[in-house]
Amino acid sequence: MPTDAARLHRAAVIADAHNDLLMAVAVRPPEQWAGYFRARWLPQLRDGGVNLQILPVFPGRGAEPESALRRTLRMIEAAHRIAEGNADAVTLCRDAAEIDGALATGRIALVLALEGCAGLGSDVELFFTMYRLGVRVASLTHMGRTALADGSGEDAAGSGLTRAGIAAVAEMDRLGMLLDISHLGAGGVEHVLALSSGPVIATHSSARALREHHRNLTDTQLRGIATSGGVVCVNFFAPFLHESEHTIDKIVQHVEHIAGVIGIDHVGLGPDFIQEVTGDLTPLWSRGVIVEGIDPSACVPGLAGPAGLPLVTQALLRGGFSEQDTAKVLGGNVHALLRRVLKEAA
């Protein structure tokens, strides 16, 4: 790396808003959780300079609420054991002070997030249970339909939030949990922006103006998130960046577009590194299967995992972003958002 890029990457807060590594950890026996994280994932996070990691808890697609809840609790327990078994390197953070304390002592700040809430069903009171367990970010659905909302894959239904979904937004606002609109259907995004009293985040979504896919956000949706005071974190998943050109320059173009629409203060990174996780969880006989026209193993060369993040710093600087703006995109904006929302724990 050029000296200026390496220096900036070391000095900046590097925030990854979405890494599904918990899925790969929790599938192993509990006695291996902390050690596997230390051996396999901690070196990658260190090599990538990550010091603020939002950890999604995703129980998988298609599970019934009861089994999804069991998987959710297992993944949350895995996160706690990771933190307890690697206390010299990571901290599971519940509020802004704990995040800042971790950063100040050279540890990685981990923030738990529910992806999809499939295990909660319509029992909105369980958001407080999740909050007690350390969850501070949540999205209401994944690709499909939950008791709270429809995912972007259901956009043809044209639906907003359910009655339970409306109550969930109010409860998250009360608790001070950050609402994630990635994966939410178009009607749901509009509904959330009308209901929520605080900022929202898109933890891993790119620009639909550059790549027409229901998982990406329109310029109107981008403006709504910025108006709320939130942040849009660009997804690195190659098929969401371009139909065929899977290069790091495409990531820069999505950053440029989103910054051009809503301003540099509202852009972050949500890489969604899933190649290794997919490899861990997918049986050999089903690898290579195309899902919704997308190869789930596709990735931008050099960015199969967090160790490649310094390449993004280099690409942003090469693309004309100033050091100050690059630092905001790398993690400064996400850090600032979490500090605003995650005040003293309720």
Rank of each mutant, 00 (worst) to 15 (best):
Y36H: 14
Y36G: 09
Y36V: 08
Y36Q: 04
Y36N: 05
F37D: 03
R38G: 03
R38T: 02
R38H: 14
A39E: 15
R40A: 13
R40Y: 12
W41C: 14
W41S: 08
W41E: 09
L42I: 09
L45Q: 07
R46L: 13
D47V: 10
D47W: 05
G48N: 02
V50I: 04
N51S: 02
N51R: 00
N51A: 01
L52C: 02
Q53G: 11
Q53H: 07
I54R: 10
I54K: 01
I54Q: 05
P56R: 08
P56C: 07
V57Q: 08
G60D: 07
G60N: 09
R61H: 15
R61F: 13
G62S: 05
G62Q: 06
G62K: 03
A63I: 08
A63Y: 07
E64P: 06
E66I: 05
A68Q: 08
L69Y: 14
L69N: 05
R70S: 06
R70P: 12
R71H: 08
R71V: 12
R71K: 15
T72Q: 09
L73N: 08
R74C: 09
M75T: 06
M75G: 10
E77C: 03
E77A: 05
A78G: 14
A78K: 12
A78I: 11
A78P: 07
A79C: 12
R81T: 07
I82T: 09
A83P: 04
A83C: 11
G85I: 09
G85D: 10
G85K: 03
N86Y: 03
A87M: 11
D88M: 03
D88F: 06
D88V: 04
A89I: 06
A89H: 15
V90C: 04
V90Q: 06
V90F: 06
T91Q: 02
L92H: 02
L92P: 13
L92C: 12
C93N: 07
C93H: 13
R94C: 10
D95H: 02
A96E: 04
A96C: 06
A97S: 01
A97M: 03
A97Q: 01
A97P: 00
E98Q: 07
E98L: 00
E98D: 01
E98N: 01
D100K: 04
D100Q: 13
D100F: 01
D100W: 00
G101Y: 04
A102C: 00
L103W: 00
L103T: 02
L103Q: 00
L103R: 00
L103H: 01
L103I: 10
A104L: 02
A104P: 00
A104C: 02
T105L: 02
T105V: 09
T105R: 10
G106W: 00
G106Y: 00
I108T: 04
A109D: 03
L110G: 04
L110P: 03
V111G: 06
V111W: 10
V111K: 05
V111A: 12
L112N: 11
L112A: 15
L112W: 06
A113W: 10
A113E: 13
L114R: 13
L114D: 13
L114K: 10
L114S: 15
E115W: 09
E115S: 11
G116Y: 13
G116S: 10
G116R: 12
G116D: 12
